[in-house]
Amino acid sequence: MTSTATTGTVGHEKLTMAQALNRALRESMAEDDSVVVFGEDVGALGGVFRITDGLTAEFGDTRCFDTPLAESGIVGMAVGMAMNGMRPVVEMQFDAFAYPAFEQITSHVAKMRNRTRGAVSLPMVIRIPYAGGIGGVEHHCDSSEAYYAHTPGLHVVTPANAADAHRLLRAAIASPDPVVFMEPKKLYWTKEEVDLGAELPGIGRAMVRREGTDATLIAYGPSVPVALEAAEVAAQEGRSLQVVDLRSIVPFDDETVCAAVRSTGRAVVVAEAPGFASVASEIVARVTERCFHSLAAPVRRAVGFDIPFPAPKLEHVQLPGVDRVLDAVDDLQWDLS
């Protein structure tokens, strides 16, 4: 992975995203007794991705515990615990395995504050490992962010590097609102130099990961490294691409995204999810509505096709890679400028 930090901080230690997430959980649990972690295999095993590794040993099995294998039950119980003074952080084992909890998430997690005119807040986090790139079998690679982003009342956050994973998870746990925290599982094991003490923007702020002047790539989660790699390749070909990492899908940072697009006049949205009715569609709509007079070309998308996620041997066909991104960039009407 190419450089991810433009904050200028010097890394103090090498951490994977998985370790950074674990650190965030550990710190939040140490600071606040009301933070409880539960889900499937999160106890003795430490989660199938080891994000909760060691938490039961350190904090006891009333603070980090395994539940019966039922996602609606996990989220529904978390709603009740959040109603009664706790800050649950629940793990859905994989993106598509969260669907049994869909009613609890969309009808209750998202709506309780509004339903009760602000009387009941649900400070809870639903962690969901998502997206492809790991050769996973069916139901293990969905990009399900649009379902949650479409539901008013949820914050939807997705980090693209270890430092952000730590910063944003800490912020999500501290938030008075429910946060769907989407973890790009293909980035779990990427090691980076990070300074966990560095000041980083919180939920709701996008960040420019790479400066550029010719066009803006807008990406989030697993697509940020793809966008950065595409920018690197483009630079070798003499084209300067800016990369914006959303970090937070909801709330959406119109300000940063639009300022970036206005500075270059061209934009491509990069995302793994099928493009139809997607987060990428929303970004195109927002940018077009707000930046139309700064645009030299229609905003393009380099996204997944509108097909069920393929089996491992064909997933490379579905995932937007550097070529698909640069093809979209090539289509930005350069001959007209």
Partner: peptide
């Protein structure tokens, strides 16, 4: 389920 959570 919310009742279970409140009780727990």
């Amino acid at each position: 389920l919310h009742a279970v959570g409140v009780a727990h």
